[in-house]
Lab assay of single mutants.
Amino acid sequence: GLPEGWEMRFTVDGIPYFVDHNRRTTTYIDPRTG
């Protein structure tokens, strides 16, 4: 799974992105792969 505090969501286009609730940021880069 994802690191603690992270969540995976999808855009309206079906593109996955990642929400970091710890820092309240979003990124398209998987936190597991950097």
Rank of each mutant, 00 (worst) to 15 (best):
Y28W: 15
P3N: 03
I29E: 12
F18W: 15
V19T: 07
Y28M: 11
Y28D: 08
E4Q: 12
I15H: 09
R24D: 15
T11W: 02
V19L: 11
G5R: 04
G5P: 04
T33V: 13
P16S: 05
Y17M: 07
Y28S: 08
M8S: 01
F18S: 00
E4N: 11
N22V: 15
M8G: 01
T11I: 01
R23Q: 14
G1L: 14
E4I: 11
M8Q: 10
F10M: 10
P3K: 05
R24H: 15
L2W: 06
T33M: 11
N22G: 08
I29K: 10
I29G: 06
V19Q: 03
N22L: 12
F18Y: 10
V12H: 14
R32D: 05
V12S: 11
R32Q: 04
I15S: 05
M8R: 05
T26Y: 15
R24S: 14
G34P: 14
T33Q: 11
T25M: 12
T25I: 15
R32M: 05
D20I: 01
P3F: 04
W6T: 02
D13N: 12
L2R: 02
G34I: 13
T26K: 14
F18D: 00
R32K: 04
R24V: 11
P3A: 06
N22K: 08
I15L: 09
G14L: 07
T25F: 15
R23A: 14
I29L: 12
V12F: 14
R23N: 15
T33Y: 12
T25G: 08
F18P: 00
D20M: 02
P16M: 10
D20P: 02
V12E: 13
Y28G: 05
R32G: 05
F18E: 01
E4D: 12
G5W: 06
R24M: 15
W6Q: 02
P3V: 03
P16H: 04
H21P: 03
G14D: 07
D30Q: 00
V19R: 05
V19D: 01
Y17R: 00
M8L: 09
G1D: 15
D30A: 01
P31L: 00
T27E: 05
Y17N: 01
G14I: 00
E4W: 11
D13I: 06
P16A: 10
G5D: 05
T26G: 06
M8P: 01
R23P: 04
D30M: 00
D13H: 13
T11E: 04
P3I: 05
D13R: 10
T27G: 03
E7F: 04
I29V: 11
R23H: 15
G1V: 15
T25R: 15
R9S: 07
P31K: 02
L2S: 02
W6R: 00
V12P: 14
T26M: 14
R9H: 09
R24F: 14
Y28A: 07
T26I: 15
V12T: 14
T27L: 03
N22S: 10
P16E: 06
G1E: 15
R32S: 07
Y17W: 07
Y17H: 02
T33K: 11
G14T: 01
R32N: 05
R23L: 13
R9F: 14
I15T: 11
V19H: 06
E4S: 12
P3Q: 03
R9A: 08
E4R: 11
P16D: 02
T26D: 08
R9L: 12
G5S: 05
W6M: 05
G5L: 07
